[in-house]
Nucleic acid binder design. Structure first.
Lengths: 348, 348
DNA sequence: TTGTAAGCGTTATCAA
DNA sequence: TTGATAACGCTTACAA
């Protein structure tokens, strides 16, 4: 491996170098290389481009940022990048961003609101063009007020704030049809003949969780069924949380359950694993449904019934709002559609 | 949503503002806020910190970067962030980076070498502290020479280059025991009674692919078995590639196969899906093994036999090499261990 | 220990 | 259209 002593470390080629090599002023070089309203004489432009190529010049983005006072960085804040839901969303945002020449940088909170606040602050210092909060958000949390203040400052200095699927903060939000999707799911399940449900929710104050539970309940109600509060289990919002939750469940509670609805697929999969270690077969002994339709599901047997969230569309919508600088079509909600699979067969 | 006209856009608070508010010079403020060799009088320091807090000051990282000539950004270049292998690696690198106060930014190539080259160039312009290439790498590709030149320039300007599991370029590499892992896997499979294999590889020039195939073959040879070249199927290095590959396979080829070894789990899962649509049961009709032990596997039934790559360790090793500025312990190779599961039961 | 002043690599203003 | 020259926000000799 070429071990390089500080001595032979090469000074990076700067715009000044290019200008000198091309025999023009720095300003002309700048105008020729990095777009600007002004036009540059073709001949000079050629010379500058030539010199830049020859010297392998590449612009110092930080210096540009300082001079311009803005960047094209979009910070995507997620809870956990190893989670299939977030990594797919990241992929879709990145893809969409390309068209607008925006740089996306993904950053992880590990579900820590303090960390979220810190990050927003940091990105204010970086003059990020936008910050996208894709995590879940806690209703009524003490820190939420602090986060809100930080976001306001971020906006005040010219940045854009976009939230995904969380209604706990007064900023532009790309809404998913959480409650509608859950409602249609429970209706469909009722039509399949299911009557006795158990719901697996994330921590109680999680916004997305609440919406999905509420929608599920409403769908049941419309079918003349019920989801009593004691049939909603709150646990950590993760595979592990759900896994542990079903393990510690009373036998009679489980015995009285025909179908377990988890507020997202990760939890549904954790629940399935937990149920199986209890000796239950899916779906013969108990049915399971989730939410999100993460990519992982293509490999799950039996196929998991879920509600599909078109993350590709989420990415496009997020980026569109940032790029246009306008609050997207008012009230545009990303649709969510029920996908029935083998984990919830028709009941006789 | 608060629509903010450019008019009431607030000028960001700068170090100068803080210094003025604290009644000290800019340099003192700088020294007090952002570490420096020099010590600042406690009283003054307190005043500066106070002022900074009061004004919600946060440093402009770009300006710091310009002034210092370096950053603490590590660019992690992966093929696809929605791929479980890469997203787990990203998570592990990020976690490890925290301890050294390095900022990780993940960026995606979509398996395009051109793009990889562009990115390295861009990160040279950003004075990134390091660039980590975690994608696979093509042996002998024409563009590899170009990529190499770009990486050399990156290093020449003071950046560090770290490769993960690719031996096609002469830079510091965190090596996985690809061939050893595959060798032990095939030995174990031979011991279980398997005799007739089919290997599913990525595109022929992919380095990791070749190493794994070679190791697998060697393990068989040591057990007195063979993997003839015509039993190695090359396809796109992805779920879809493997899925398509097994679909188009001749019936007699498949009939003569007891076990399919895919060079990574994604492909193994794609193969399983493809085999199933052909009406084959896993493992009753045909056994399958993969490589990587991605997180997804915890939900796969039957459990997939694979070779575990400890990504957590990879992340630590990558970051350690960047942070220490030294080429890690010479020849340190990340171990890879066989994990036998139900997809490859003992054969009678 | 503090402050002054000169950079860092760009962009933007304003004459020429 | 081009080129001096002054920003941009920060760090860091160098002097005090």
């Amino acid at each position: 491996m070429p071990q390089r002593s500080p001595a032979d470390r090469v000074r990076p080629v700067t715009l000044t170098d290019v200008a000198r090599a091309a025999g023009v002023s720095q300003s002309t070089a700048s105008r020729a290389l990095n777009g600007s309203a002004r036009r540059v004489d073709d001949e000079l432009k050629r010379r500058v481009l030539d010199a830049a190529n020859r010297l392998h010049y590449t612009a110092n983005v930080q210096a540009q940022a300082v001079a311009r006072g803005t960047t094209s960085t979009v910070a995507l804040v997620v809870s956990d990048i190893a989670d299939a839901y977030f990594s797919s969303m990241a992929a879709s945002v990145m893809r969409a961003a390309e068209a607008y020449d925006l740089r996306v940088t993904v950053v992880v909170t590990e579900r820590d609101v303090e960390r979220e606040i810190e990050l927003v602050r940091e990105y204010r210092g970086q003059h990020a063009r936008a910050v996208v909060l894709a995590g879940s958000g806690y209703r009524h949390s003490a820190e939420t007020a602090e986060l809100r203040r930080e976001l306001e400052m971020f906006e005040a200095t010219g940045g854009r704030v976009v939230l995904v699927s969380r209604s706990d903060l007064p900023f532009e939000t790309v809404d998913l049809d959480n409650s509608g999707g859950a409602r249609r799911l429970s209706s469909a399940l009722a039509r399949l003949g299911y009557r006795r449900f158990l719901a697996l929710a994330g921590e109680e104050q999680l916004v997305a969780t609440q919406d999905r539970i509420a929608g599920f309940r409403q769908g049941l109600r419309e079918s003349g069924l019920e989801l009593p509060e004691e049939r909603v289990l709150y646990s950590e919002f993760s595979w592990e949380g759900a896994h542990a939750a079903v393990q510690t469940l009373d036998d009679d509670v489980l015995g009285a359950t025909e179908l377990v609805f988890a507020v997202n697929d990760e939890m549904a999969l954790g629940a399935i694993a937990g149920l199986r270690t209890r000796g239950l077969r899916i779906p013969e002994d108990i049915a399971v449904a989730g939410f999100d339709d993460i990519r992982t599901l293509r490999d799950i047997v039996p196929g998991l019934t879920t509600v599909r969230v078109p993350l590709e569309e989420v990415g496009r919508e997020v980026v569109a709002r940032i790029a246009t600088g306008e609050p997207g079509a008012e009230g545009r909600v990303i649709p969510a559609s029920v996908v029935l699979r083998e984990s919830t067969p028709r009941r006789n």
